[in-house]
Each structure stands twice: as structure tokens, then as C-alpha cells.
Amino acid sequence: MTGTVITVTSGKGGVGKTTTSAAFGAALALRGKRVCLVDFDVGLRNLDLVLGIEKRVVFDFLHVVSGKAKLSQALIRDKRIDTLYVLATSQTHEKDALTYEGVASVIGQLQKEFDYVICDSPAGIEHGAMMALYHADHAIVVCNPEISSIRDADRILGFVSSKSKRAEEGRDPVREHLLITRYDDERVRCGEMLPVADVCDILSAELLGIIPESRAVLNASNTGLPASFDAGTDVGRAYRDAASRFFGEVPQPITVPMAAQVAVLESRPQRGFLRRLFRRS
């Protein structure tokens, strides 16, 4: 049995890819799946920080890619969730050190050992991002409800459907999921952010979940915990919801105030200010 590769990507930076990789991966691991998180952001190592394992990194992804270390030496097991592993990236290597052959070999080995391999993509549409999405079976596109993030998400979805290994080999396309993060219901209501329905409409992709803007995210990364670890927070619930939606279970209605969204939809003018802006930008 081979593991499923999930790439977390966005095009734009700072929208919550690393937070999502850690939180979503942990949510899968909390359900008993064997999960490995792989940081593709060479030179800007963050995933280990978010998970609070930065001091335990001795060998990294790049050492394994270049054959200087064995995979088993570089894999770091999470101390709280015992089916969650991390393959940290290098802070010192050049970005181009990720080679197609090297990455293919590491992903192949990981697929043998894990149910899910989660690739945390760097921002942008350059080499690192392409390497991160190349092996994807699923792509989780992280997007904030604002126009530049949406355009970049659209662009990266284009790469997912044309530049992945699945596309090159003419197999079934990569499953695309949309995860809206930093969603602020109040700001949507006063028209500063786009409603969920508009984002889904513009991106024509399946909605995996909505993660509310919350202090819990920063608190979690400051303490080195995945944001999904504490089911008592709104963010924790939202990530766990996204995980159950990923498995095709019908979870409770999307955690973020759906009632408010319905109100927004009903009272929505035919063409909002943002929509017009988006069209013209």
C-alpha cells in the first residue's frame, strides 16, 4: 500500500500554509493515521518551529535528498501525537538543491511508511513550489478571503492541474481542495472581505473548510503546538472539521458562523464593492 501525498500550497505568502500543514497533518494523525510532514521551504525553515521541534533537527530533508543521511535519521517523531512525524528542511542549503530525482526518491520511501505525506509548499511559483506540488494526489489550496490571495490561489491551481506528475502521466487529476483561512465574519459583513460563496465561485474548487481568524493560531505556534491539537478552540474545531470533510464524512455545519453567512448572502447587493474591484484589478 502506498501513502497519499497531500500538498498544501497557496501561491501567496503568509496566508497560513505552514499552520495548515501542521494543523491538518496533526488532525489526520489524531485519527490514528500515520502522517509525515515535509517542509519544502528550503532556506526559510518554519514547520519545525510551529511544531516546537526546532532543537531536535539534526539531519534534514536536504541531507536525505543528497544522500548524506538516511531517512530514518532525519525523521522526527512528535512527542504528543505518536503517529505524527516531521521531515524538516534545511536553513542553509540553496533552493535549487531539491532535485527531481532526489525528491522523488524521498517521497517514494515516505509513501511506503506513511498513510499520508503532507508537503508544505513555499510561497511563489518557483522551483520549490513546483517540487512540492509535483507528487501531489491532493492539493489543499490555502486562501484568505481577499483579492490578491484569490488570484494567486487561482494561478497555483492552474499549475496543480498542468504541472503535477499526475497531469504529466495523464492519470486522474489531482483532487483540489480549497481551505479559507483567516476568515473574519465581522469584516465580511461590513464588506471588507469576500463572502465564502464568492471565493468558491471565483475559484471553482471544492471547499474543505473555513478557518476563522483567531488568536489561538498565534498562541499555538508560540507554544509549538499544532493549531488543531486543542479541540476547545474555534480553530482547533475548524481544522478537525476540515479533516473529517477530507474523509468524506459529513461533519457538523462548517464551524464558522454559517448563520451569519446566510444573512450575508441574502442581504448581498447584486455586485459588491470587492467584486467590482476584483474584476477590474
Binding site: R151, D154, R155, L157, G158, S162, P173
Partner: peptide, 9 residues
């Protein structure tokens, strides 16, 4: 039969 994304031609 798929969406045509930003940047595609």
C-alpha cells in the same frame, strides 16, 4: 472540461 485558471492560455 476544467476551469481555465489565471495565467493559462
Amino acid at each position: 472540461n476544467h476551469p481555465v485558471r489565471s495565467g493559462q492560455k
